[in-house]
């Protein structure tokens, strides 16, 4: 259902050109959204037709997350990398972190956030166990067995709030 709504919204935004929208365009959008949702279901049959992904509270939390901690983390990350490019001070290593996140959507979100924020890059995720274990390449290792907080701050909490 989420995929259907997102496809329709994206198509309508791309087709919209300042004025009104033709009814034909809406028809095409609905048809294409149906095709996309059907393909996603064929790809992963366990998907259910629930409305859970459309909970407005989650979307508001997601947008808040995008503009407050994520944007700030990205700005910090870039100045950090700029500093390291210029001075060449690195101490790289791959560390293991147990994230405690169960859903695959939450894990994806956390992995992407880790990649775009200060000094860290997700290399591999082991989700064979109960919760996802992240292997993170850290450009400035200060602790070989770091706690969650030290590597990515509050992103784990946000991912849990948005996607679980």
């Amino acid at each position: 259902m989420v995929i259907f709504v997102l496809s329709v919204a994206t198509y309508l935004l791309l087709a919209w050109s300042g004025g009104g929208i033709d009814p034909i365009e809406v028809g095409i959008a609905v048809a294409l959204g149906g095709v996309m949702a059907g393909l996603a279901r064929a790809w992963n049959p366990e998907r259910s037709w629930t409305l859970a992904g459309l909970n407005p509270l989650r979307w508001i939390t997601f947008i808040l997350y995008l503009f407050l901690p994520f944007l700030w983390g990205m700005i910090k990350a870039n100045f950090d990398v700029a500093f390291r490019v210029i001075t060449g001070k690195i101490r790289p290593g791959i560390v293991r972190i147990d994230s405690g996140l169960k859903g695959s959507l939450a894990q994806t979100m956390l992995a992407n956030s880790i990649t775009l924020t200060p000094g860290t890059l997700t290399v591999d995720v082991d989700d064979s166990g109960e919760t996802g274990i992240f292997y993170v390449h850290w450009i400035n290792v200060t602790d070989e067995n770091p706690p969650e907080q030290k590597v990515y701050g509050s992103f784990g909490k946000w991912a849990r709030r948005v996607a679980e």
Binding site: I90, R91, G93, I94, R96, A111, L121, T122, V123, D124
Partner: peptide, 26 residues
């Protein structure tokens, strides 16, 4: 972000190890 993750994972699986690494838990 997803592409970077895919490249890192495939690099590690194909045996390219990080240079000067102090620790490699993976």
């Amino acid at each position: 972000a997803t592409g970077a993750h895919a490249i890192a994972r495939s690099a590690h699986r194909s045996g390219v190890m990080p240079k000067y690494a102090v620790v490699d838990r993976l």
